[in-house]
């Protein structure tokens, strides 16, 4: 489904502005088809949404442009679940957090 799209114009990770062209570069030129590895090179999934918006799309892209059956993997989700300001975290007592 992505084959006919202009790779420069398709944004696959909107937080970091990563295009389909970026991902295809990683998959086709660097021969990398692991989600976590592509994240480390192109930053897809590193923005404020932490990959929750883009993970499915990126997995589809990897599937489409990788020749073999691949083990794409998943993002490792890290705390905090949503962005939190320093001033909200500082001096927080563990008991206050449920």
């Amino acid at each position: 489904m992505f084959e006919k799209m202009d790779p420069e114009k398709v944004i696959v990770c909107r937080c970091e502005g990563i295009t389909l062209a970026d991902l295809r570069d990683g998959i086709e030129r660097l021969k990398i088809n692991d989600l976590e590895e592509l994240k480390r090179i192109y930053r897809c999934g590193m923005g404020p949404c932490q990959g929750r918006t883009c993970e499915k799309v990126i997995k589809q892209v990897i599937q489409e442009f990788s020749n073999n059956e691949v083990d794409i993997g998943s993002y490792s989700y890290r705390p905090p679940l949503v962005p939190i300001k320093f001033e909200e975290l500082a001096n927080v007592e563990a008991n206050d957090v449920t």
Binding site: M46, G47, P48, Q50, R78, P79, P80, P83, I84, K85, F86, E87, L89, A90
Partner: peptide
């Protein structure tokens, strides 16, 4: 720094 958002920790 107090106004900045933490995105993730590891």
């Amino acid at each position: 720094l107090k106004k900045l958002n933490v995105l993730r920790q590891w």
